[in-house]
Write a protein that binds this DNA or RNA. Structure first.
Lengths: 92, 92
DNA sequence: AATCTAATTAGATATTTGTCTAAATTATAG
DNA sequence: CTATAATTTAGACAAATATCTAATTAGATT
């Protein structure tokens, strides 16, 4: 179970920012990197962690790699937190 | 804004376990510790991180310190994730 | 085939994190 | 007011994390 990995992936601000960027739609690694003051290698490192946590997936196309958000794992986080928060709002 | 702190607090499995224990009700530091194979000092360290993240709060009573879950910050996490997940289920 | 481009991998390193033992704190109970 | 109990704080340290530069891989274009 990769649940622990997912929480750890979410713990870094750069990675959360990447996920926010991907809300709009898929983006190449380079495009993602251009939003940060970090080397491509570092971006690549963060993308790998997000990928391992199954928070994003990649599609290779030409010589670009496009990344997209995988909301189904976000769904699992929501359930865990919702359960933690308790029953005061059972509609989730 | 302690939002980043909260995600980091949630990243550790022992800390998530502590939160789960507190779902049932408040518990003293020692009682919490008895559920783990760690020294009291280490439990204290984790409690401090959860407290700084405002995921729990403490009440001193006699010579015990009782910890309880603070669900309002959990609520903030839920909102962030819900927004990330997108609009396919707007009821939250 | 040679070269250029996008991205990743490898290796190094400083910082952060989780853990321990030992000491200090704080309140209760004799 | 001293001894005990619950917890935290301090200091040390190994492991994990985030970052960089340099090298490598995989495709695309000429």
């Amino acid at each position: 179970m990769a649940f622990a990995e997912t929480f750890k992936a979410l713990a870094d601000p750069a990675r959360r920012e990447i996920l926010t960027l991907l809300k709009v739609g898929r983006m190449s690694a380079g495009e993602i990197g251009s939003h940060f003051d970090m080397t491509g290698a570092t971006i690549s490192y963060h993308l790998k962690i997000l990928k391992n946590a199954e928070l994003i997936y990649e599609e290779k196309e030409k010589n670009f790699i496009y990344y997209s958000l995988n909301t189904s794992v976000v769904e699992d986080m929501l359930l865990w937190l919702s359960d933690l928060r308790g029953d005061q709002d059972e509609k989730n």
